[in-house]
């Protein structure tokens, strides 16, 4: 099956079409945030203060790129492990976040939150930072510059490759994939 092309911001109509295992190519604006930035974003929400960017319909990419060389848009920029953001993700989803891109398992609470707030968790290929960086056409730090590689960036992406891991229907690619290939090595 050829990849599904999607453009940000995401609405429920797009979200409902995406199923676990679907390959997607994402275009448009996405935002970056890792542990430290998440902790600050959640604090702002809890204090009823404005966020550095509008969450509604947006995708957050869990990434801390390498510094760009002169003339480069961005350095190497693959996903980081997502479970570290599990503590913060449900509140962001409650406030309109529609997508997350990372790698690795999510908690039961995050998966429940994905269903409840109609969102999606995409997996990108960890360790493919050079390849992925080619789909990023602009990058600008918009908040928390003091966090260096962990600052919040606004990225423009064209055909960013990812795969639907957790969909709105409760699907989980990691569980389904493992079940399918269990004990197949010896066969």
């Amino acid at each position: 099956m050829s990849p599904i092309k999607i453009t940000t911001p995401l609405d429920d109509e797009i979200i409902l079409k995406l199923k676990t295992g679907d390959e997607v190519l994402i275009s448009g604006t996405i935002y970056t945030a890792r542990d430290a930035a998440h902790s600050r974003l959640v604090k702002l929400i809890e204090e009823n203060k404005p966020l550095p960017f509008e969450l509604k319909g947006q995708i957050i990419y869990y990434v801390g790129p390498t510094p760009e060389k002169p003339g480069e848009v961005i350095g190497s920029a693959g996903p980081t492990t997502s479970y570290r953001m599990d503590k913060y993700a449900p509140l962001l989803l409650e406030h309109g976040l529609k997508g997350m891109i990372g790698k690795g398992k999510r908690s039961a609470e995050v998966k429940e939150s994905i269903k409840k707030h109609k969102a999606v968790y995409f997996g990108a290929i960890g360790g493919a930072g050079a390849l992925i960086s080619k789909t990023i056409t602009s990058s600008k730090v918009i908040a928390y510059e003091d966090l260096l590689s962990e600052a919040v960036r606004k990225l423009t992406v064209v055909d960013f490759p990812a795969i639907v891991v957790n969909d709105v229907y409760g699907g989980d690619l990691y569980e389904e994939g493992r079940e399918k290939y269990k004990n197949k090595y010896s066969k």
């Binding site: 990434v63 801390g64 790129p65 390498t66 350095g75 190497s76 920029a77 693959g78 980081t80 290929i125 960890g126 360790g127 493919a128 930072g129 050079a130 390849l131 960086s133 080619k134 590689s149 490759p161």
Partner: peptide, 24 residues
């Protein structure tokens, strides 16, 4: 597909002198 992209990533990294992974 994942493995082929990992191998392609290695080629790009080498040709463009770009880190293989952002976690150096």
């Amino acid at each position: 597909t994942v493995l082929s992209k990992i191998l392609l990533n290695a080629e790009i990294a080498k040709n463009e002198s770009k880190p293989l992974c952002q976690d150096t």
